[in-house]
Amino acid sequence: MTQEEDIKNAVEVLRRGGVILYPTDTVWGIGCDATNADAVARVYQIKHRDDSKALICLVDSDARLQRYVRNVPAVAWDLIDAVVKPTTVILDGAVNLAPNLIAEDGSIALRITKEPFSHELCYRFQKALVSTSANISGQPAAQNFSDIAPELLDAVDYVCFSRRQEHKPHTPSSIIKLGPQGEVTIIRK
């Protein structure tokens, strides 16, 4: 299967409200349409995760990120432009997303992915994509496809074929929270 066919299949599943497993710019992820509350609820259920713990979303561009945050502070753009490692930014004023995806304080965690597969997937899907590590809550994140627990493979609607053979170290993204006055809090290095 070509990467293009893989992405086409994944997008069809996402548009139907399904849940996928896919490679990202960091670890393997469990994903769904970030605007579909039922799909988001399924991701929490699959991970056995408390829905009070927020999930990260991937987007393909600055323009797409702006669709999901009321006002992106200038410091966020400076940070996004400066970082080398994949970095997730938590921003206030989340909009146009499933309510059960938005944190209690109204914030959302977003990352612009530049990795070819996840970037193209987000571009073709044309919406924010939930990206939470492919593991049961509390277990280690799946760095490679071979690390994914069989119960997760059985629980989702589609498992991407791209990058399944890869065996190299991957780490979760850095997470930085930006406050309304530009305050910076490092959540995960």
Rank of each mutant, 00 (worst) to 15 (best):
L110Y: 06
D38N: 12
D105V: 08
L91T: 05
C160R: 00
Q165H: 12
C160P: 02
P116L: 08
R164W: 00
S107P: 11
V159T: 12
P23W: 02
D33P: 00
V27P: 09
K85M: 12
G106I: 11
A54H: 08
C32Y: 03
R124P: 00
L79Y: 08
A134Y: 04
V11S: 07
L153A: 01
E151T: 11
Q45G: 06
Q165T: 10
Q165S: 14
E12S: 14
R124C: 08
N96H: 10
R15T: 04
D38E: 14
G138H: 11
S146M: 10
Q181E: 14
C122V: 04
A98I: 12
H170L: 03
G138A: 09
L153G: 00
L153S: 01
I7R: 06
S61F: 10
L110V: 15
D62K: 15
V130D: 03
V72N: 04
R64I: 11
M1A: 14
A63D: 15
W28P: 00
N144T: 00
P180E: 15
Y44M: 03
C57N: 07
E12L: 14
Y44P: 06
K47R: 13
Q143K: 15
R64W: 00
V43R: 03
L129D: 01
T185W: 04
Y123G: 08
P140F: 02
A76K: 04
W28Q: 01
I112P: 11
R124T: 03
Y44V: 06
E183Q: 15
A37C: 05
D81I: 00
I7V: 14
G18K: 07
T171W: 03
T171Q: 14
G106H: 10
K189Y: 10
H119A: 14
T24W: 04
A149L: 13
L55M: 15
I102M: 10
L91I: 08
I112A: 10
S133D: 12
R124V: 02
D51A: 12
K114A: 14
G17P: 07
V27R: 06
L178S: 02
D157Y: 04
E4K: 15
V130A: 05
A155T: 07
